[in-house]
Design a protein around this nucleic acid. Sequence first.
DNA 1: TTCCAGGGGTAGA
DNA 2: TCTACCCATGGA
Length: 298
Amino acid sequence: MASQPIPLRFAEPHPRPFNFPATVNSHGWVELAPFSWDQDRATLTRPIELDTGTLVELSLRPWRNSISGVASSARPLTAAERSLLSRATRRMLRLDEDLGAFTRLAAGRSDHTMRLAPGAGRILRCPSLFEDIVCVLCTTNIAWSGTRRMVSRLVEQLGTPLPHDPEKRAFPLPRAVAEAGPEFLRQQVGLGYRSEYVWGFAHKVAQGALDLAVLEASGRPTAELRAELLAIKGIGPYAAATILMLLGRYGHLPIDSAMRSFVGNKYYQGQTPSDEQIQAIYAPWGDWRYLAYWFDSG
DNA sequence: TTCCAGGGGTAGA
DNA sequence: TCTACCCATGGA
C-alpha cells in the first residue's frame, strides 16, 4: 500500500513579462519523460530524484507574479532539499536568465518574422544538466518519435519510482545509468549505437571524471565550453550547439536536417542550403543566433 | 524493400 | 581539413 505523500508548497518569483505556457512548450522537451503537461490546468508536473536520494513529485503553475510549486514526498523535506527544489525550478524555467538584449534586438528587426509572444523566449530545460545532455544525445540521427521512445524507456527501465505512486518514475541519476552498462542500454533501452555514448558520459559523471557543475558555471568563455563538450564522445557540432543553448549561450546554430529544411524553404526557394548559407542568415544575430533561428522557425 | 531521421566517430587522403 | 563509410532503430 503506497503511503500518503506530504505536500510542500512554495513560490518562486519570476521575471516580467513571463509566459509560462510558452516557456513550457518552447521546444519538445516537455514531451519527453518524465515531464507531464496539463494544458487545461496550465500545470507542469514531473517526478524528480534529488541528489540526496529523496523522490519528489513536483507540480508547477503560474500564480500572480510567481511560479506556484507543490512538492510531494514521502517524508518532510530538509532545508537543503527545499533549496535543491528551488534551484531545479529556476533552472527548468530559466527564471534567472536575462533575455532583455535579445528581445530588444528582435523588436528592432523587421527582416525576420519572429513568432515571439510577450514573455516568451525562455526554452524549457530539465532539472539537471545531466538529463539535458542525455536527452540531446537521444536526438541525434533519429526521428523525434525515436527520441521520445528512448527517453521513455530510460525512465521506465532505470528511473526510481515515486514511493506514493510507483507508476511514476524519475529520470535516472548518472550512477544508475553507469551501473546499467552499455549492453543493457542497447538491449533493454534500445539506444542502439548511442548506448556507448550515453553510458560513457554517465560513467564519467558518476566517477567524478566529468564535473557538470564546472560546465554550468557562469563566466567561462563559450569557446572553452564548446571545446569541452566536443571532447565528449557522441557530441558533435549539432549536439554541442544544442547543449550550449541549454546552458544559456545562444551564439551557435545546431545545423541539422530540420534546420536545413526550414532555412531552405524560407530563404533559398526550397533549395537545400549549405552550412555557410545557413550561417549567413543568422549571423546578424550574433550571440543570439540560436534564439533567432528557434523563434524564426516557430 | 528502401530510405532516412532534430549526427557523429573514425580512417584515410 | 575534407570525404567516405559505418553505426542501430523504427516509421514512412
